[in-house]
């Protein structure tokens, strides 16, 4: 068994950098969720996506459940629900598949993203 962390197995910061544009492009082109991104500053949003991917890849982060709640409260007010979280996790999986990441690692990433669901939806 490999003793490398998930983050190391995925390729660390280089992997995050490779994934961030692809992932953000998928999210913006995804009709199920793109409306939530209409009036955001793209540079700032890309930085947030990078922080999110770093966390989902098992990398260093300082996200807390409270941050997640605060950060998404305005979207929950606009109707953010489980189906939108599903869409994001799907787009995340598709991004990793496009980069040739093994399914077992994709499942681990999806599980980390999944663990934020209740905080994101503020319940």
């Amino acid at each position: 068994m490999s003793e490398q962390s998930l983050y190391e197995q995925l390729g660390g910061e280089a992997a995050v950098n490779a994934a961030v544009d692809i992932f953000y492009r998928k999210v913006l082109s995804d009709d199920r969720i793109s409306a939530f991104f209409e009036d955001v500053d793209m540079e700032k949003q890309a930085a947030k996506q990078k922080a999110f991917l770093t966390m989902a890849f098992g990398g260093p982060h300082n996200y807390t459940g409270l941050d997640m709640r605060k950060g998404h409260a305005h979207l929950v007010a606009r109707g953010l629900n489980d189906s939108h979280v599903d869409a994001v996790i799907e787009d995340l999986g598709a991004t990793l598949r496009e980069l040739g990441v093994k399914e077992e690692l994709i499942a681990q990433v999806a599980a980390i993203a999944e663990s934020t669901r209740n905080d994101v939806l503020d319940r």
Binding site: A47, K48, K50, A51, T54, G59, P60, H61, N62, Y63, D67
Partner: peptide
Amino acid sequence: FSCRSGVCQ
């Protein structure tokens, strides 16, 4: 500040 790990900028 936020992430304190050089990521979030």
